[in-house]
């Protein structure tokens, strides 16, 4: 009987290979750490890839300052525990000029605090490769994304400029100023990520687990009330048993009503539950093809 890898282990092996290629091919790689579940899996894989050595590159968090406090807490504790080097970058200029989603609208705010910050943060660090936890199944414009995705000097993605990727051979050659975004989780689906978290006992931000939370119901979304979230005229706070399916900034991410307070229950819920992960990320619905536009502008 020939030994066969279980599906998750096959995906894991592929991801370890990609992480190692990144460390080997680039002068100055960095891991874009968004503190979300995909990032958590990515960091876990990075620990495995270089064992018994340490992760040979830093973790970079693009902090919009509108993140959930629980995320920041988790970030600091976790990175300290595993001995990873954490770097944080914020678009200070925009913050100083009062950037926020209420006044600017989500499109512009993300543009400054995420997209611009990401491009600037990467440039400031002089990184030639940025690892991220994006998956192809997340959104239509990511379906065509390469594992090694070329970005020009301005950090922009051009679908016509990507290199053919055959077998497991990755061409990471870049000129000064250019960079590659590397996506080791390209072939993982949302379900794969959760199952892997389950079998590996990977710690994730408590926001993913259901618990009674103070929220405001706005435009069909359930928005947890955090310090940054303003109540608009006519709105009332409520307490709802809910959890975050996808993490974003406090004013712009919706929670879902749920009783799932363990990974097992989250997975069961996922099986029965067909709404797309990103549906509650309001930024995806700004315009048709909105993620694609943001990618052309440099957003991850």
């Amino acid at each position: 009987m020939l030994p066969v890898l279980s599906h998750l282990r096959a995906l894991e092996a592929e991801s370890l290979h990609i992480l190692r290629e990144t460390a080997a091919q680039f002068r100055k790689p960095v891991l874009l750490y968004s503190i979300g579940k995909d990032s958590s899996v990515l960091v876990h894989l990075a620990r495995k890839a270089f064992y018994p050595g340490r992760i040979p590159f830093p973790l970079l968090h693009i902090d919009t300052t509108y993140e959930y406090p629980e995320m920041i807490e988790f970030r600091d504790r976790f990175t300290r525990e595993i001995g990873a080097e954490l770097r944080v970058y914020t678009n200070q200029d925009a913050i100083a000029n009062g950037a926020n989603p209420y006044d600017l609208g989500t499109s512009k705010c993300c543009g400054l605090l995420r997209t611009r910050a990401l491009v600037d943060g990467l440039r400031q660090g002089g990184y030639d490769a940025a690892l991220g936890g994006a998956r192809r199944d997340e959104e239509k414009s990511r379906a065509k994304e390469r594992v090694f995705s070329f970005r020009d000097r301005e950090g922009r993605w051009d679908p016509r400029n990507q290199r053919p990727e055959l077998w497991n051979i990755y061409n990471g050659k870049v000129d000064p100023g250019e960079s590659i975004r590397v996506f080791p989780l390209s072939n993982w689906t949302e379900m794969d990520v959760w199952r892997y978290i389950e079998i590996e006992n990977i710690p994730i931000v408590p926001l993913y687990y259901a618990k009674p939370r103070p929220v405001v119901l706005r435009n069909g979304s359930v928005i947890p009330l955090e310090a940054n979230v303003k109540l608009l005229p006519g709105e009332q706070p409520e307490t709802v048993m809910c959890r975050m399916r996808s993490l974003g900034c406090t004013p712009c991410s919706g929670a879902i009503r749920s009783e799932a307070d363990t990974i097992g229950k989250i997975i069961d819920e996922l099986i029965g539950f067909r709404r797309s992960e990103r549906e509650n990320r309001i930024i995806d619905h700004d315009q048709e093809g909105s993620m694609e536009l943001k990618k052309r502008e440099g957003y991850f």
């Binding site: 890898l5 279980s6 599906h7 998750l8 282990r9 199952r195």
Partner: peptide, 11 residues
């Protein structure tokens, strides 16, 4: 550890 199936299927 690497071959046991944990709810996923062949690919």
């Amino acid at each position: 550890h690497f071959t046991a199936r944990t709810g996923e299927k062949p690919l």
